[in-house]
């Protein structure tokens, strides 16, 4: 399960993710992180059964946590099956099947958004954005 964690670094630089790993024993896979001097955002992947404990621990340390139900979503009415998304995706989410139709392996997506920029037909979006 993927969680989007936002934290402020203003109140000191607490090693939130490391602390959660230490205290819960859950192995957290950081798939994407943007951290600057004042705030940070990390997309983490954890086993489904650990979702509750990780979420609560993160929240208690001052982070806001959002469960990401979906990866990138393809709007089939807009998609023309060109494949512009295929090579720009760092996680090989997209491929063309034997009928040359674009297929999405949603579970691989880390919502970096690069494909949304590359799609000429605005056929890719985040569910959370709607």
């Amino acid at each position: 399960m993927k969680l989007l964690v936002n934290f402020s670094r203003k109140a000191g630089q607490k090693p939130i993710i490391a602390q959660v790993v230490k205290e819960t024993g859950v192995l957290i896979n950081v798939e994407r992180a943007i951290i600057d001097s004042s705030e940070g955002e990390a997309l983490i992947d954890i086993p489904d059964e650990s979702c509750k404990i990780v979420k609560e621990k993160m929240a208690s340390l001052g982070a806001t946590v959002r469960v990401l139900e979906h990866g990138i979503i393809l709007d089939e009415t807009e998609c023309v099956d060109c494949g512009a998304c295929v090579s720009v995706c760092p996680h090989e989410v997209f491929y063309l099947d034997e009928d040359w139709v674009v297929r999405v392996r949603e579970g691989r997506c880390v919502l970096c958004g690069r494909c949304m920029e590359a799609c000429p037909h605005h056929a890719l979006y985040h569910k959370e954005e709607l």
């Binding site: 023309v80 099956d81 060109c82 295929v86 040359w100």
Partner: peptide, 14 residues
């Protein structure tokens, strides 16, 4: 090995 992307649609061409 470098991955390729088509900008035109082969499915639609067919």
């Amino acid at each position: 090995e470098i991955r390729t992307s088509s900008l035109s649609s082969y499915r639609k061409a067919k």
